[in-house]
Design a protein around this nucleic acid. Structure first.
Lengths: 192, 192, 192, 192
DNA sequence: AATGAATGAGTATTCATTCAT
DNA sequence: GATGAATGAATACTCATTCAT
């Protein structure tokens, strides 16, 4: 019951997620979607726009992972749950992680799109909000919340950048433990 | 007196550093090097091998930045100097930074090459060595040196990944200050 | 109150007049007419037929310029007014001029259509009529009216072919003067 | 023994001469030349440049027809021979005639190229020279030689524009006679 | 009377690579 | 060591047109 437009989008995402940007060709997408190459242009005016939608989908998927953490009962738990959800996201969708956080290949194009930059800020703000709460509740020391968010996000991105590069243990079990140990080391200097 | 091989390598590097991966075509490299496109094949069996050498050059450049930190007189200074040199590296050669740390576009190919993974480990070990020293000297708490290196490297990579994505302040002056404040926050929980 | 068919025709004409033949695509016409591309096929069986109508419109526009010259009071004045009106036509509608007189791009198709050839003859006959009058009135020497029409028309077409090619002065003022001087030179050998 | 470059050029010319501009596609040219479509790019950097060469060839062919008229013994004969050679040119190469004189389809591109405009002027100057001679020798009345050239050229272009449009007699014999009669009418008003 | 979806053939161009010289 | 010629596959994209609704 999915529309052709959605099918194209999914195929483009899969294509990107498995083959990377250079594997993202209109022809290949069409082939996967079982339509003619030109039919794509009925739904997306060009490759750029199509990819744009793929990226947007990546951001919304990421946000969908983070948001439920708001249901936890204390600021500290909300912060830790946010980090845990971010962990799940990258393990579930490593290519999406690359797409929205690494994306060196598309940075130039993305730079121009205000909506994508806005999407970027959303995750940033989710971290900020969690951190502000933790400062207000007395769990974390008073500090610049923006810079602290940047630090936490940096550690997250860098950690899984190393992971996707194959420089850290591959096993999900091990990497999860190592992730949490790293978080603890980090928070260690930030708590009151 | 540079050999043709070196000229090709330099041109490929420049091409990559200015135009990114999609600008790295044999023809364009040859044009820059003032030779015929096919002449490249005398020196490199194909594009992959050529790019491989470019990446290797990136790693050695990075290592060349880090190593002089060994001349500092105390473990703590050596650690801080290492981090400072890493900062200089990314500001001097943002494309090389991307190439060797972000490189999502080439990760698949790189994954197969043991020598590149070895190069990756070298910088890792430089961090490890600095950190071990600091533990021995009593500056840092006893901990797993490898995981601590990973954390420091993660923060570094993630921080400048955000920077090259345009999500952090652009001015070198500001970003340097913010970098050091982040390092301090990080070390804060790690020192004795 | 214009019908869709007329709207399409006008848009096709505008498109042709501003963008030339290569800009005359069904999609672009439809876009301008604010209808779907396929809706055109309700009114014209294909592109060829649509273009055919555009050309017809060009001819009738041209004829509309020429005819009022009949109101002048003497044969000589009617002849000169005809030439003056032809001048105004080409300055007002250079693309129409090309379309109906130059039209090398569509000649093959046009060659088959009797109605268009008939339209072509109309302007020819307008000239012939004027010239016959001038012979009867004694203004022009006795000669073959058809061949004289062809000569006058040739000079007209060729003159503005050079003009639209940029080989003659561009300014309307200058080109008008030059046009009349050329006419005088021509008539000089034809008058009694 | 013709080089591939020449072969391509000839095929492109033939293609244009028989199919017109819209038939001038790189693929079709390559097919005619029995090479791969991409091989063309070894010799011409793009379609525009290739077409540019075709046009140049058209101009030089035209000039090659006109120049021998210089061998005639009197100014009047040289003028008439020039006109006769121009006649032969258009009957031998009607498509070249269109290409260089009608060419509404390529006017935009040609407008930018100084060398082509220079080529255009050459034929113009050949006429001018002939006309100046005839004024000096007393065959023609004193007048503006440039404008007279334009008039003669206009008549020539317009006449054969009508001819290629099918509005004049098709038979070479008839059209030649009609051409000369028209020339005589024209010169009639210009001679002393 | 009109639409949206889709198609197949076509466009110019770029690419890494091979081969004979 | 190096070149010029050539290739086949690929690229994004446009076009006129058909068809079911």
């Amino acid at each position: 019951m999915t529309s052709t437009k959605d099918t194209i989008l999914e195929c483009a995402r899969d294509q990107y997620l498995t083959e990377g940007y250079k594997g993202l060709s209109m022809r290949k997408i069409a082939q996967k979607a079982n339509i003619s190459a030109t039919a794509i242009y009925r739904h997306f005016s060009n490759k750029e726009e199509l990819f744009h939608h793929v990226v947007k989908k990546g951001f919304s998927t990421y946000t969908d992972y983070l948001i439920p953490a708001e249901n936890e009962v204390t600021p500290e738990l909300r912060l830790r749950q946010t980090m845990g959800n971010a962990l799940e996201f990258v393990l579930d969708h490593p290519r999406y992680f690359e797409l929205i956080f690494i994306k060196s290949e598309t940075k130039d194009e993305l730079a121009q799109f205000d909506d994508l930059r806005a999407d970027s800020k959303i995750s940033f703000n989710l971290y900020s909000t969690r951190i502000k709460e933790c400062m207000e509740s007395g769990y974390l020391k008073e500090d610049n919340p923006g810079e602290l968010s940047a630090l936490l996000l940096s550690a997250y991105i860098g950690f899984f950048s190393l992971y996707t590069s194959g420089l850290l243990p591959r096993s999900p079990k091990e990497i999860k433990k190592m992730y949490w140990r790293s978080i603890d080391r980090l928070l260690n200097g930030l708590v009151k």
